[in-house]
Write a protein that binds this DNA or RNA. Structure first.
Length: 449
RNA sequence: GCCGAUUUAGCUUAGCUGGUGGAGCGUGGGACUGUUAAUCCCAAGGUCGUGGGUUCGAGCCCCACAAUCGGCGCCA
């Protein structure tokens, strides 16, 4: 029971005048007592199918009439080129088989009204209502969500392609861990037999352990952060593309960050132009993200710019989202922010040998208000400096003993970054909320369905 | 952790000064031979989030709780 004909191919004109069997789901129906119009969808597109009572007979016509939205069906018919049909093609049905009928007592609950969700300012928030979030398992098959999932797939593919083309080795770290990566972040605590473990916040520490073995490594994996962040940019479970390179400088790592983001943008243009267009995305902007080099700015410059705009900001404080937003509102490209003050960053960031007030790090800030999409830099690599910085922070050594050990045996300069894949897809898709680009979003107040 | 808001039929919502809760979509029935989330007629469908309180009387006023949404901090 396979499937050989796809609606997308029919709409591309591959089957004009031919008899085909279409398998799919009913998106909507309309018609009279003599003919029915069925809009059939599958994963590749939609097509209008016409069933005439004279041609298909009483029984099949009744079946078509009774088939409710989201029933699965197999329709046999002839493909006609017809301008009256959306997409330019139409199936003239001559046989009908209902595979999975929908019970009229429980019709498909998502309708046009349910899809029109707006926020407090009247801005569209697709999929944002309690009802749609509760029915996420059914919302997945709406055209907007399908489009987002296709963009997401292309972005994941682009990341793998970028790193593999650069001879990186894909490497997996454990998700149960004993200690934190991010200094102030909260960890999800989970019972682990008679012990306590945590869900990983990052692959980084375990990647650094493998750095002397593989030298160039990367992953795409979920990371977990128990922050009660209620914003359009946060998930408690998000997909993290991380990389680590031996012997690399901050500039080299930034070049990879820029490279992978540009490659994601160009891949979306190559593979998903029609999806981007259907989302009303500005293709010129995506092309700019794919083709133009990303400007770099030191933290001090950013602070000066903010101060010149009248924003109160003290040297040494981390730049929060409200300040990032002011800084990036004039940008038409992602910008790197480099050389943050040491006091704003955790122990594993390498102190700048040229000026001990700073660390050799970078953040990549996306334009259009999407915020930080990459955080990275050189790592503290000598054993002596690691111990000193842990003590400065008051962080205990025990959970990091394996990490300290890696420095004792041939430590070398190295670094890497973490990229928020969902954030990048959200930005490039122009999504109104990060949950738009992940099938089952996990946020501080929702783990279901 | 902090601030703000919402909760009325399966969905989206109206509901005046506190005085018998209306509609659209969907569903069921009927009409219609080219519709574009068709159109027209009819019907069923409501413990108004939960629990208290005030009142002759509460969807509406008061209190508590819950769920959810939006924003901030923090981050990717």
């Amino acid at each position: 029971m396979g499937k050989t004909v796809w609606i997308g191919e029919v709409q591309d004109g591959l089957y004009d005048g031919k008899t085909v069997e279409l398998k799919g789901w009913i998106k909507r129906t309309r018609g009279s007592n003599k003919m029915r119009f069925i809009v059939l969808r599958d994963s590749t597109g939609e097509i209008q199918c016409v069933g005439k009572k004279d041609t298909i007979g009483e029984e099949s016509f009744l079946a078509l009439k009774e088939a409710l939205i989201e029933s699965s069906v197999i329709l046999n018919g002839t493909v006609n080129v017809d301008e009256r049909s959306e997409g330019g093609h139409e199936l003239v049905v001559n046989a009908v088989e209902i595979v999975g009928a929908v019970d009229p007592e429980r019709p498909f609950p998502i309708n046009k009204e349910a899809l029109d969700v707006v926020d407090e300012d009247g801005e569209p928030m697709p999929g944002g209502s309690e009802f749609l979030l509760n029915h996420r398992h059914l919302y997945l098959r709406t055209s907007r969500m399908t489009t987002m999932l296709k963009l997401r797939s292309s972005a994941f593919g682009a990341i793998h392609n970028y790193f593999r083309a650069g001879d990186f080795i894909e490497y997996q770290a454990p998700n149960f861990v004993a200690g934190a990566v991010e200094g102030g972040s909260t960890l999800f605590e989970v019972p682990y037999f008679d012990k306590v473990a945590y869900l990983t916040q990052s692959w980084q520490l375990y990647a650094e352990a493998a750095m002397p073995a593989l030298e160039r490594l990367y992953t795409i994996a979920p990371s977990f952060r128990a922050e009660e962040s209620r914003t359009r940019r946060h998930l408690t479970e998000f997909w993290h593309a991380e990389m680590e390179v031996a012997w690399a400088t901050n500039d080299e790592i930034m070049a990879h960050g820029e490279g992978v983001v540009r490659h994601i943008a160009s891949t979306l243009l190559d593979e998903r132009e029609s999806e981007l267009t259907s989302l009303n995305r500005d293709l010129d902007a995506i092309a700019r993200y794919a083709d133009s080099p990303y400007p770099k700015m030191r933290y001090d410059e950013a602070v000066e710019i903010l101060q010149s705009k009248g924003v109160e900001v003290e040297w040494g404080e981390d730049l929060d989202y409200s300040k990032e937003k002011i800084l990036t509102q004039d940008f038409d490209l992602p910008h790197f922010l480099t050389h943050y003050p040491k006091i704003a960053k955790p122990f594993y960031h390498r102190v700048d040998p040229d000026d001990e007030k700073y660390v050799l790090c970078h953040d990549l800030l996306a334009p259009e208000g999407y915020g930080e999409i990459i955080g990275g830099g050189e790592r503290t690599w000598s054993e002596e400096e690691i111990l000193r910085r842990l003590d400065e922070e008051g962080t205990p050594h025990e959970p990091y003993q394996f990490y300290i050990d890696t420095r004792s045996y041939g430590g070398v300069p190295h670094g890497g970054f973490g990229l928020g894949v969902d954030r990048v897809v959200s930005w490039l898709a122009g999504a109104s909320h990060i949950r738009e680009v992940i099938p089952f979003p996990r946020t501080s107040r929702r783990v279901t369905p």
